[in-house]
Amino acid sequence: MKRVFRAGVMGVVAAVALSGSALAADYPTKPIEMIVAFAPGGGTDVAARSIASFMEKHLGGGARIAVINKPGAGGEIGWTAVAQAKPDGYTIGFINVPAINALVVEGKAKFKMDDFQPIANLVYDPGVLVVGKNSPYQSVKDLVEAAKAKPGSIAIGTSGAVGSSEHITILNFERLADVKLTHAPFGGTAPVRQAVLGGHIPAATMNLSEALQLSREGEIRVIGVMSEGRSDYLKDAPTFREQGYDVVAGSSRGIAAPKGIPADIVAKLEAAVDKALNDPEYLEAAKKAEIPLHYLASGDYKAFLEKSTADLEATWKVSPWR
C-alpha cells in the first residue's frame, strides 16, 4: 500500500517539478496552467480544452497544458488569478472581451488591463439582435419606431446580468437611436433562446454563431448584425450600420499571461496558438461547427484590447451601466 501511495505522489510531484528553473530556451519544462474563469463545460471551457490539446502538440517536446477552472463573479476570480500569477510562462489564461474590460472600466476589479500580456486572440463573434419568427419587426427601424411610440414597452432579452457586455450594447444602442428600451436579463443563453423562440420576449441579443442555425431554419429572424460588414456565414442579415445605427459589438476569446513574462516565451505561445488554429484537424472541425475563428497576434491583440477599453470608457462616461 505504501508503495502505491508513494508512486502516486511521486508521479504527481515529478510531473509538476520536472525542472525548477524556467529557461526560455527549453520552455516548457513543466505543465502550463491555463486558467479558465468559467465553470467546466461552458463555452469558454470547451474552447480552451480543445485548443489546449493542439497547443500541446505544437509547443512540442511533450508539453502539457492543464486547464484549471476558477469560476465565479462573472470571470473576475479567474482573471484576478491570471493577473497576479508569477510571470514565468507557466500560468496563462483565457480572457473574454469586453467582459474583462467592463470590469476594469467600472473600477471594480483588482486588476488593470496593463496587468496582462496579451498572447493571441482566437475567436471573435459579433453580436446580433434577433426576433421570433412571428414578430412584427422586420428591421431595426421597425423596432425603434415601435419603441418610440411607447417608450420602454419593448423588452430586449440578454443572456447576461446588469453590466454584462450585452447590456452595455443595449445602452449604446438606446443612446444612438435615442429610444428607451427595457433590459431583461435572463442570466443564461439557454433561457433567453427559449424565450425568444416561444415568443415570450419581443427581441433578444445573442452572438451570431448562436443564431446561425435557428435563423437559417426560419425559427428566428436576425434583424441586425453588430459588425462592420455583413457576415459570410449569414449573408442575408443586414448590419446595424446599413440601417443607420453605428452599433458594433461582439465578444472575443483570447489568451493572455501576466505582464512581465519573457518576450521569447510570448513568441513561443503565440506561435503555438497560430499553428494550433491552422492545424488541419482543428480547422476542419471549426469550419464544420462554424466557429468564428479570428486570430490576432500578440501585438494586434494588444491594440484590440486597448481600443475596446477606450470604447467602454467612453460609454461609461455617457451611460454608466451600474
Binding site: 467546466p40 461552458g42 442555425q213 464544420k288 461547427a289 466557429i291
Partner: peptide
Amino acid sequence: AVILGGLLVHGLRPGPQ
C-alpha cells in the same frame, strides 16, 4: 450544454438540420 459543446467539436451543429 457540455454535450452540445462536444457535438460542436465534432462539427455537428444542433438544430433541426
